[in-house]
Write a protein that binds this DNA or RNA. Structure first.
Lengths: 173, 173
DNA sequence: ATAGAAATAGCAATGCATTGCTATAAATTC
DNA sequence: GAATTTATAGCAATGCATTGCTATTTCTAT
């Protein structure tokens, strides 16, 4: 049973093979990002996951009032239990503080402290160097293209969630 | 202060922002891959990392004689200690066995058992479905493009390793 | 006011991933 | 033959990430 067209369409095996390599590269890239990224900010006592949280809280629109746990979970797409541990470490180090939400008595907002802001500003230099080195082989256009494809991949992977219909897309400013 | 050219060249801030979003999407995609991928093979009692090891050992060229720890570390790009724990779990479940290397008395080769091969064949169906669903929004050409970009990203991230000069690239057949 | 939903906190377990250290056995090199 | 390197194993610690469960406080809807 041959394909009808001579243009050599991808077989199921071909498709599986490409997808397999794709996700394997995702797995390897993620591990390397965490390993070498953590090394890049090791001098500050931080890790990649902590820098993700700090980066979320440092955004201009939320820097003043912080974010509550629900917002951070939606933004970072991690579990509540995982996030709580990271927030506890950041709080213990004095980089963030938990304040009561003025509007909602149940909620507590995590906000950068003065110390946290200072550390973050220093870390930004190391993070910038890390980005530059890791993406040295990519042009600006390619970086944008890769970002957009990873964004779609994230959406494709997120759509597989059974219950999580609240996959709201917070802005990223 | 306006840009000199009307073509709006990328500023340093633009470059940082794109890189920042790119790695954030990598972080999110990886988390989702592990979470939903593990759900996809949960019925078999497996996880994504275990399926990566099984997939490595199931390749035609190594299926008969297996791989030793050093080869697996180079292939999967994980630490020795992490791999040992995963291999122990697979061995305890009877999916792999550790045999003595005929050529090198120090080395032990991890090889799929008959049971492991049977489970892997079943898992392949679930994995194929997972791939299809996660990449439903991508054409064949886009999947190939994304794979190639992730491959380069992996290389860029791997080049940041201080000591690891043995970043040999094993084939993937 | 009462019931239900939502936001947080905590306990417990499993698995992944890293680093650092030591020890043993076998191969290689000199 | 002796010294070094290589491959594996084990112990210990830290951090990330998930799931499942319960409890408390507060807000909202009836």
């Amino acid at each position: 049973m041959r394909p009808k067209q001579a243009a050599a369409p991808a077989t199921n095996a071909d498709r599986f093979d490409v997808a397999n390599r794709l996700f394997f590269r995702l797995y390897q890239s993620s591990n390397l990002m965490h390993k070498n990224g953590t090394r890049a900010v090791w001098g500050f006592g931080s890790t990649t996951q902590q820098w993700a949280v700090l980066g979320a809280l440092a955004r201009p629109r939320v820097r003043k009032d912080g974010m509550n746990v629900k917002e951070l979970i939606a933004f970072l797409m991690v579990s509540r239990q995982n996030l709580a541990a990271v927030l506890d470490r950041l709080e213990a180090r004095g980089w963030i503080e938990k304040i009561k939400d003025a509007a909602d008595g149940r909620a507590r907002r995590s906000r950068l402290t003065v110390k946290g802001i200072a550390i973050w500003d220093d870390m930004l230099v190391a993070i910038g160097d890390f980005y530059e080195a890791a993406l040295a082989d990519f042009s600006n256009e390619e970086q944008l293209l890769l970002y957009r494809m990873l964004d779609r991949l994230k959406d494709g992977l997120g759509a597989l969630n059974p219950g999580d219909d609240d996959a709201a897309q917070p802005d990223e400013g």
